[in-house]
Design a protein around this nucleic acid. Structure first.
Lengths: 374, 374
DNA sequence: CGTATTATTTCTACCTCGGAAATAACCAGG
DNA sequence: CCTGGTTATTTCCGAGGTAGAAATAATACG
């Protein structure tokens, strides 16, 4: 069995590789001697490869960087919504190789597992390396064993989703809350890579919030229950279904924005249309979008101030708002930022909706590293 | 030299003692055998004592709890303001034994060091155990070597306060930002003891903010620079000197509250008078105090939501506001708390202004534990 | 072509830790 | 009072991870 140090080495090479033993020693606070010893079993089993770095002009013996084997394994990440599964096939670094969408009905565990299984079969056929892990994420509460404690949008209570899918596919399955999974993806492979702390705000059908401090995601009982969904942002704003005026849900979600525009224009519109109307100068859509931009900026500033982390990562399917109003969001964030603190650094995950499925893949990869099983 | 495990043991006994080896093993994740080994040098050097627990009716061999020696050492904690030093003499657990206030003028390093030295002399004479460490805190930026990088309220830039005081007194001196020190005191000895995470809000002449996550205080460059000082809380509120409408400084500080009441009543009032006027039913003071209570409640909810820590500690000289309006603050916090999350737990440090000096003592104690020097 | 520099490996001793068994100190009940 | 049960602590000892020192490797530079 391999030790904790072995696992730390595997994680470090996966996240920061290719990287030389010397740099690894500094990063893990271990001596060069230990690095030689720790890396040996990985090289012997073919999990790591040693690269030939062409000399870069520096004096001294050139580094011999370690990297993960290119054919280490593939992973499937699948995000369950109320009517479809959005899936990505990734490599061991959560780089997307392929993506699929499969609708399902009715909202029963059997129908969902059938959809998930069909995706896994399809991915198995085209994956460049064997599938070694499956990640599933959804909006709701899950436990460590892969059971879904509750998922309101599916009307599920206590469903053994992980075990069922695992026996159906014969592969290791990790089930996680969607926001938690997305945060893990940002931490290991995304915008937060190499940063010790940042907060994550997702916008789309809902508003999600996650936090990383000291290199670790903050996991409390309330992670993923919708924290950040009802932050008061604009006292003159619209009402959300819970009756909060100008809260993040009312202001920032695609549902909330579309509802505002529809109420004023008298006809249904979708999210993309709201944005393009705003770009075209429609006064209603412009007002709604600008209010959202100010609200998001305020939320970014609040997150940065209260978490004491100057970096905020934006992700989710609502990134269209960023594309249209980035300067306004930045200005609003700066206005509410504490004047003495350094400016907020806003990082945007451009993957849009795929970021959710990539999050599911990320937790599957993490599970594989913890098991040191590839 | 003693190891990291020895230090962890010392910290654990100091914070949670008296405590048996068995419980220590569970807490530190070490075997009973290791606890016997680790505790030995402390008992031999007289730093720990073994208590005789009278049997409490439980079966089995009774625990033999370890505790720190009662005469382990005394500590001085001193908070520097613009015109006086507030000091406490404490035992090794930051329990206050005595307190002093010494005014100084002018705002020069020499005058401040003279005031600090006179307090140290006075404490030395009455301390029940030898003084082993001195902690100094102030509003401003300090570095690890005990230098004050800048302290605007004293017009100081780059003053070697720690080294000067150390050579003047011959004792180990620790200098820390006042908010950071207060957070450390709450974490080790105060309301946050035994909790892995919480946020701290101080109100008084200013608004301070600190954060503990995963058992560690969050130390970023912006710790103690005034984060939380200008959080927008009430869009219809008064202006702060920076021009923010209804921000935490305008709403919650004693200065801000007194200024509002004075503007309406046309005569100067102090903080205690504002509170007693409000209790007596004066309409102006009542409006100001209730706005402050609502604002503080909102700030508490924001802190809990964005830090994902359900516990918030209140401290500082403005605790009079809590005494007068606790139910209103609780109600406001509950209103802005995310509906799905567990209720906010509000803990109040009743020490008032002394909490600042106690924070300085706490960082001195921490330094002594790190050095394992008593 | 020798020297300086940096990376990595080899060898080895240390030292922390935990497992197992023994011992200690209590309670409960006959 | 004695015996068995239970929990806390100690003793003994081996396993294993770690780092120090020295050797070796591979480059740039003059």
């Amino acid at each position: 069995m391999l030790t904790e140090s072995h696992e730390a080495l595997a994680r470090e090479v996966l996240i920061h590789g290719p990287i030389g033993r010397s740099a690894l020693g500094r990063r893990l606070k271990l001596s060069p001697a230990s690095l030689t010893r720790l890396a040996k079993p990985f090289l012997e089993r073919g999990l790591f490869v040693e690269l030939d770095e062409e000399s870069n002009g520096a004096v001294g013996r050139p580094v011999r960087p370690l990297d993960i084997a290119p054919d280490l394994g593939s992973f499937a990440g699948m995000k369950i919504t109320g009517d479809a599964v959005y899936a990505v096939l990734t490599d061991a670094r959560a780089q997307i190789i392929d993506e699929r969408v499969v609708d399902f009905a009715p909202k029963t565990p059997d129908a969902v597992i059938a959809a998930l299984s069909s995706i896994v079969s399809a991915f198995s056929a085209i994956a460049p390396a064997p599938l070694v892990g499956i990640g599933v994420s959804l909006g709701g509460a899950v436990d460590d064993s892969g059971r879904v404690i509750r998922a309101p949008f599916l009307d599920w209570v206590d469903v053994a989703l992980g075990p069922s899918l695992s026996s159906a596919t014969g592969l290791a399955v990790t089930v996680e809350n969607d926001v938690v999974a997305l945060v893990e993806a940002e931490r290991w492979f995304g915008a937060g890579r190499g940063r010790s702390g940042f907060s994550v705000i997702t916008i789309g059908a809902g508003v999600g919030y996650g936090l990383v401090v000291g290199g670790e995601a903050v996991h409390t009982r309330e992670a993923g229950v919708g924290l950040g969904g009802h932050v008061p942002l604009d006292p003159t704003g619209p009402l959300c279904p819970e009756g909060h005026r100008g809260c993040s849900s009312a202001l920032l979600t695609s549902i909330g924005m579309c509802a505002q525009v529809r109420a004023a224009l008298g006809r249904p519109v979708d999210y993309d249309e709201v944005l393009s109307l705003a770009v075209a100068g429609d006064p209603v859509a412009t007002a709604v979008v600008e209010a959202a931009a100010r609200g998001l900026g305020r939320m970014i500033a609040l997150a940065a101030n209260f978490t004491m982390q100057p970096t905020v990562v934006l992700a989710g399917d609502g990134m269209g708002l960023w594309k249209v109003t980035a300067p306004r969001i930045r200005a609003a964030a700066a206005a509410d930022r504490d004047p003495l603190a350094e400016p907020v650094e806003i990082l945007v995950d451009e993957a849009g909706f795929r970021a959710w499925a990539r999050g599911a893949a990320a937790v599957a990869i993490q599970a594989a590293v913890t098991r040191l099983a590839f």
